[in-house]
Amino acid sequence: MFAFIIRRTALMVPTMLIISAIVFVVIQLPPGDFLDTLASQLASQGEGLADSQIALLRERYGLDQSILVQYLKWITNIVTALDFGQSFEWNKAVLDVIAPRFWVTLGIALLSLALTAVVAIPCGIYVSLRQYSLGDNLATFFSFLGLAVPNVLMTLVLMYASFTLFDSNPGGLFSAQYQDAPWSVGRVLDLLAHLWIPAVVLATAGTAEVVRVMRATMLDELSKPYVDTARAKGLTEARLTMKYPARIAINPIVSKLGWMIPIIVSSEAVVSIVADIPTMGPLLLRSLLAQDMYLAGAIILLLAFLTVIGTLISDILLALLDPRIRHAME
């Protein structure tokens, strides 16, 4: 098992390297660079920037070198010193700009993942046991609805509901009175009051998917002969359902959760832009528009890293849960 984890972790390295190269190419794609944006900004404000000054700055940031050299420099600094470069726009180390927002992104992702698991797994088990009942049909209906409502729309609807019903405009992370307050119960509740919209929106699509998978797997497992064997032992329906089919149907869900992480991280970016939550999403949008390339690159890279780590964890969990996979590894 230990060897498997090591091997699986080592496999991440080339993946991340290739991703970093793709990311670097992508952030290099827009014509021109940050200095052009800066120059045109200054020009529009009536301040000129001499060509010689631009050339000087370009040399300082290494923007005059070839893409390959720039990439090698960039990735070497990241790997050796965890140095993601400077943000042009913020005039700070990229890591310092990202760090506080990274934790918010991670928090929202984990919160919605937990919400998905807590709601979807019991729901999936329930509807599989009551096939074609009212509850089953309702769950199917909501599953489709959850898949069909665009995240932006759902965020807007929830914000609209919160605004018209509770007269609160839950943008940002904290209300004014808790913005700089020390941590307290009130502050945590205030934080949750601001985070519930993204968490619910992100969990809805995931829940719909997990209920569908859970229901299908449960129906499949419930028809397997080992369920009869368990019945023949005299176990109660509740006990045998939980011990056998439900336990086995969890396995595909665990790998599903791994694949859901990129979707959650992705959607989180959009939802946070809509709901104005200070995560990496809005920062990414802003850095892309300003051609703040190292900041943008670092954000995409970190989001990809979250995804890769997520699938790693789900692979490890799956191996722990399923002895067949575990033994195939060894």
């Binding site: 023949a232 011990k243 336990r247 002895p323």
Partner: peptide, 15 residues
Amino acid sequence: GMIFQEPMSALSPVH
């Protein structure tokens, strides 16, 4: 007591 035809599928694979 009862025993079944397929001894593989009659046993839970993960227990």
